[in-house]
Structure formats: structure tokens, C-alpha cells
Design a protein around this nucleic acid. Structure first.
Lengths: 112, 112
DNA sequence: CCAATATTTCTATAATTATAGAATCATTGG
DNA sequence: CCAATGATTCTATAATTATAGAAATATTGG
């Protein structure tokens, strides 16, 4: 994942309703959740939710499919993986921060 | 790290110059980099860079210390850890995405 | 085909964020 | 003390993003 996509993904997640929606979709798994259900769960007007879901989709973090009248959104785990990978590589000194590793210790910079 | 801080941190990183600055500071390690040097390296006017650094500081992602005339910024690895931890816990089904684990496989949702 | 349902686009407006020059504030060498 | 240096705040403006009602677009049951 290159820097431009990373910024789009970070921007997408950096908003209350969108972060909540994405969490919901991650929880829901591959089956996904309909746009209307997301809006209702998060108590956000449908048109506003649609705006936010479009941003998540644009960032590649969610996919959508039509199922009868509904449009079902699902989290794209691969994209999220890509984002996590970039952050780990570029913003954590290459150390997987989520692994109980203490990133706050000396990063022994060998003459950048 | 709670959701509100997460959004502040994500917002802070979701900008070209700030992401670049944070990467630079992660590279630099604990010794840090002076505000002016960051601005010059990234080719951003000092006042603009100051604005962006303030946002990173507000998000808790960087710390600052004065050293003579210069103000030295350093990445806060603990804060970044916290962010990574939140994302792993809440946006990756609890699976550490950065670990070569294939998060895109079935997340076997057991009746949320 | 038509009414009902699910969602999205359109539209206007409000709110936030970014930009960068100018003015100001801190620190130090002489 | 004062000029020079390094940085931040002030200020104004531009640009982007968020909000949500209204109108428009699919889809299906009858």
C-alpha cells in the first residue's frame, strides 16, 4: 500500500461515524450489513450514512454488493491488512507494535 | 486508548505532511528532529509545519522539548502502540494483521 | 404496472481544516 | 543589552468535509 492510499484509508477511519461503521462491519464478518441497518444502528440519517459509506468504499476499506433491495457492506480485511502493514513498516520502526513488543524502547538508530 | 483519542490520532496521521513528519520522527528515533529541520526536509513553510506538528502533539503522537533555540520533536512510540492496539482489537477481529496472518479469511462470527 | 421499500444522489449550508505571510516570543552569542 | 536565530502564534483566506432534507434511482410483491 502506498502513501496516497494510506492517507485515504486513515482519513476514512478518522471520523466518528465511519470508525463506528467499520467496527460494526468487522464484527459482522463476511456476511456484511445493509446500509439501512448500519444507519439505524448508529443513529445517523440514511443520506449522511451513505456519504460516509461512500468514503470507506473509496478508501477500499469496504466492499458493497446488492442483495434484493438492500446494499450490503462488508469490511475488506485485506485492505485493513495493507494499512496495518504500512503503519507497522513505516511508523513503528518495522516492529509489530501490536505484539506486546515494547516499541517505546531505544530504536537504535544506525545513522539514518 | 479510547475511541476519541483514536480518532484524533487517525486524523493527525491522515495528512500528507503530518504522515511524512511522523515517519521522519520514527526514523530519527529518541534523539528527535528540530522543527526547522522537519520543515526544511519536507519543504513546508515553518508556520505551516508548526501548525501540523501541533496537531501531532495534540494527538499525543509526538513530544517536544526545547534544546537551546530549537524545539525538538520526537515520535511517541507508546502512543503509536496504543493506536495499533486499538485497530488490531477493534478493526481486525482481534487478529494482529501485521503478523503475516491472513485476516481476509473467514472471521467465523459466532452470533455477534 | 404500481405502490412500497432501500438507497443513493442532489443541493444548500455549516463547520472544520489547511495555507502561509506577518508579527511576536524565547534563547544565545557577543 | 541587542542583533540574530529558531520557532510559534496571529490573521485572513482558501479548500475540504460534514450534515441532512428533498428528489431521484433500483428492486420487488401483488
Amino acid at each position: 500500500m502506498e502513501s496516497d492510499n494510506v492517507i485515504r484509508a486513515l482519513s476514512a477511519l478518522a471520523q466518528e461515524h465511519r470508525l463506528a461503521a467499520f467496527r460494526l462491519l468487522v464484527q459482522a464478518g463476511t456476511q456484511g450489513v445493509a446500509a439501512g441497518a448500519i444507519a439505524e444502528t448508529l443513529d445517523v440519517p440514511p443520506s449522511s450514512m451513505s456519504f460516509h459509506l461512500a468514503q470507506l468504499a473509496n478508501a477500499g476499506l469496504v466492499t458493497q454488493r446488492r442483495e434484493s433491495r438492500s446494499i450490503i457492506y462488508s469490511a475488506d480485511y485485506t485492505a485493513m491488512n495493507g494499512l496495518m502493514g504500512y503503519l507497522t513498516e513505516n511508523c513503528c520502526e518495522g516492529v509489530p507494535c501490536s505484539e506486546g513488543v515494547d516499541c517505546s524502547s531505544e530504536p537504535e538508530r544506525e545513522s539514518a
